[in-house]
Amino acid sequence: MKLNEAIERKGSWQEAQIRISPGSRTQWFVMLHDCNYKSFILADNNDQSIATEDINALAELIRSIGLKEFTVFL
């Protein structure tokens, strides 16, 4: 799900999870779950998954879509 679309759907997200990227053990990505528990990976406007080594940057993205809590999976 593109970040802009996720922001537009603010209030419809059940939870967010930060997980280790399968392609790189040093990068993390965000997985969102809506009220029906359908899963989405947060992506940029080019539809590439947003992955970074900085969990704090992902926390800011999660806040921008209206969630205040998230779970980190190691």
Rank of each mutant, 00 (worst) to 15 (best):
K2Q: 15
L3V: 11
N4C: 11
N4D: 15
E5W: 12
E5H: 08
A6C: 08
I7R: 09
E8Q: 13
E8Y: 13
E8F: 13
K10C: 14
K10I: 12
K10F: 09
S12D: 12
W13E: 06
W13G: 03
Q14F: 08
E15F: 06
A16Q: 09
A16H: 07
Q17P: 01
Q17W: 11
I18N: 01
I18A: 03
I18W: 00
R19H: 10
R19F: 05
I20E: 11
I20A: 10
S21Y: 09
G23L: 10
S24I: 03
S24R: 07
Q27T: 13
W28T: 08
F29Y: 10
V30C: 11
M31V: 14
M31N: 08
L32M: 11
H33G: 02
Y37Q: 08
K38C: 07
S39T: 13
F40H: 08
A43F: 04
Q48C: 15
Q48E: 15
Q48S: 15
Q48Y: 15
S49C: 13
S49Q: 14
T52Y: 05
E53S: 14
I55L: 12
N56I: 05
L58F: 01
E60A: 09
R63I: 00
I65K: 02
L67A: 02
K68P: 00
F70P: 02
F73K: 04
L74G: 05
